[in-house]
């Protein structure tokens, strides 16, 4: 109880297996308020699966998952978890392709999610300003009226980050955000995430080591479904087990 009291996200002894294969094995992990945490690990380590568990897509076989110290996430569905304030960017960028960029953001904007409130919703000036700001931040202003389907891979990544911003979550789960981005954009993304983490918590999964370095965050190394090492990037890179299972390859 005490241990999870002032955490934003608290995972303890979480395991999940698919047809006997343990994708997550006794995983324990904590994200504190306003913390930026980077997750690295070899392919198949269970990083995406961990996000699936946090966001309610996959139910753990055992273990505890708590949000904000007291909300048991294993009992909630995806929509409820999202409404609590957990936003997620997917590894494979998924945006609403037959909507315009602006509509994508409008859909993500933090507003009541009920059917009838959506029917009678009308964007007021404040909402429009917010959308303009986000478009500016993710540099998609000039494409705001284009269909999202026509964006490039990198632009879709940005759009998804924009949608995360519009959701205004307390915790952002960001799965491989810089795949498909130019080096300059990667640097920008790192800056953006750092700025965001001033006021909320961010968990980033990424393979790009220079990006991780730019983040200057606490790093957690996952391997075979559990935590291998934790600490600063320099600290974990020095860990021989990490070198063997991940960096060395």
């Amino acid at each position: 109880m005490n241990a999870r009291n002032d955490t934003l996200l608290y995972l303890d002894g979480v395991s999940v297996s698919f047809d006997g294969f343990k994708a997550i094995d006794n995983l324990s992990l904590v994200v504190r308020h306003n913390e930026l945490q980077a997750i690295i690990g070899p392919n198949g380590a269970g990083k995406t699966t961990m996000m699936d568990i946090i966001t309610g897509k996959t139910r753990p076989n055992e273990g505890e998952v708590y949000f904000d110290g007291s909300v048991d996430l294993t009992r909630l569905d995806e929509a409820a978890i999202a409404e609590l304030g957990i936003g997620r960017k997917f590894q494979k960028p998924t945006v609403f392709e037959s909507h315009t960029v602006r509509d994508n953001l409008e859909l993500a904007l933090k507003k009541p999610r009920g059917v009838f409130s959506a029917w009678f919703y009308h964007a007021d000036d404040e909402d429009e300003t917010r959308l303009d700001e986000i478009l500016e931040t993710v540099r998609l202003t000039h494409r705001q009226h284009n269909l999202a389907a026509n964006l490039s891979h990198g632009q879709k990544q940005w759009l998804e980050i924009g949608m995360l911003l519009a959701q205004d979550p307390k915790l952002l789960l960001v799965d491989e955000p810089v795949a498909g981005m130019t080096d300059a954009e990667t640097v920008e993304t790192a800056k953006l995430l750092k700025a965001i983490s001033q006021t909320r918590s961010v968990m980033v999964v990424e393979h790009d080591m220079s990006f991780i370095r730019d983040l200057a965050a606490r790093v957690t190394v996952l391997a075979e479904g559990s935590v291998l090492a934790q600490g600063s990037l320099d600290h974990v890179s020095a860990d021989p087990r990490v070198v063997e299972s991940y960096l060395g390859r």
């Binding site: 998924t94 993500a108 009920g114 059917v115």
Partner: peptide, 11 residues
């Protein structure tokens, strides 16, 4: 994208 919509918090 049904499941994406769910992750935005829509039921």
């Amino acid at each position: 994208a049904e499941s994406r919509t769910r992750f935005l918090g829509y039921r």
